[in-house]
């Protein structure tokens, strides 16, 4: 399966398993979603389980909080992560705090799905990676898959989780992995092990990283599309890196990170999001605080630039092979 089919399958499995699972969002019902992630689900489960909404992110998230208070397990979709901001008050002030402020009487067992990330000429409002806004909020879990297999297993875990979860889908890799070499032909998920997706129910636990490659020279901490870009750069340069696909940013798999950095002594952090106060800053601080005496070089971050996501200069902006390659050289030179 590609990632779209894997997400569709996760939703199908959960709609079938739990009558309280309810999907809502703009264009997700009859039409099946602008990325086809919910295709066929309304026809299969009916209009009260899978339905279209007015164009109101505040309404979509707010209504989902109320549905959760009733006892449903809503899975709202925000069409692009760039458009999640009108729903932020409901996410930050309400969904994230509901359990805490009611001392557990009310909970928000919802999973907000949203396509995110760039590399598709999406310009300013179809390319953003706003994960740091959510990792900064106590009470929210933030999950980002990098493969179809993970996308399904993680999404099922999110839907079953009793905490509100933000599930960001890297749309650049919906149809195939992307290695950052944008001038090469597009690849497909076909034939890859990480695209072998079981039809039925399975889960990947939240809070657990995935070791993508083995290597002693350095640790690369990354997630989403950038997992594939970092891997391609290491292969091309002949660098033996241990790449950790974090999969869940909150709660973070700190044990896996510590174990890896303590072994390699070097750490590179890669994300598409802008640099300042990005999630990479948190990762860098954690590695520095917890692995300081094992570090043989300063922790480096490769990120998007601190600008809005540009249209025509996409490949100048994107933290691709050149920027990652330079950072690896710098870390290994120390």
């Amino acid at each position: 399966m590609n990632m779209i089919e894997a997400i569709n399958s996760a939703l199908d499995v959960m709609l079938d398993r739990d009558d309280n699972v309810t999907l809502l969002g703009e264009d997700i019902g009859y039409f099946g979603g602008v990325f086809r992630c919910t295709a066929g689900l309304q026809e299969k489960y009916g209009k009260t389980r899978v339905f279209d909404t007015p164009i109101s992110e505040c309404g979509i998230i707010g209504v989902a909080v109320g549905m959760g208070a009733y006892g449903l397990r809503p899975v709202p979709e925000i069409q692009f992560a760039d458009y999640i901001y009108p729903g932020l008050d409901q996410l930050i002030s309400e969904a994230a705090r509901l359990r805490y402020r009611s001392a557990g009487e009310f909970i928000a067992p919802m999973t907000v799905r949203s396509p995110f990330g760039g590399g598709i000429f999406g310009g300013q409002t179809h390319s953003q990676s706003p994960e740091a806004i959510f990792t900064h909020v106590s009470g929210l879990k933030t999950v980002i898959p990098a493969t179809p297999y993970d996308a399904k297993g993680l999404l099922i875990s999110c839907i079953e989780d009793n905490d509100p979860t933000i599930f960001f889908e890297p749309k650049r890799i919906y149809n195939g992995p992307f290695d950052g070499f944008y001038d090469k032909p597009a690849k497909s998920w076909k034939g890859r092990d990480d695209a072998q997706v079981p039809e039925g129910y399975y889960k990947i636990p939240l809070g657990k990283a995935r070791q993508v490659t083995e290597g002693d020279q350095l640790t690369i901490l990354t997630y989403g599309t950038m997992v594939h870009v970092a891997q391609a750069v290491c292969e091309e340069k002949g660098v033996e890196a241990e790449i950790l696909d974090l999969r869940t940013l909150v709660p973070l798999d700190i044990e896996a990170i510590e174990a890896s950095v303590e072994r390699t002594g070097r750490c590179l952090i890669v994300h598409e999001a802008t640099r300042t106060s990005g999630f990479g800053a948190e990762l860098s601080a954690l590695v520095t605080e917890r692995c300081f005496y094992h570090l043989e070089a300063a922790v480096e971050r490769v990120t998007g630039f601190d600008t809005p996501y540009p249209h025509s200069l996409e490949w100048a902006y994107f933290p691709g092979p050149v920027r990652i390659g330079e950072a690896i050289d710098k870390i290994l030179a120390e």
Partner: peptide, 27 residues
């Protein structure tokens, strides 16, 4: 807040309870 008395947890953020009430009613 009292779930026993079907009284939803009060938030300091104004008007957030309105779409939530709608969502509860929809559910």
């Amino acid at each position: 807040c009292s779930k026993r008395l079907s009284f939803f947890t009060i938030s300091g953020n104004l008007a957030t309870q309105l779409p939530q009430a709608t969502g509860f009613a929809m559910a």
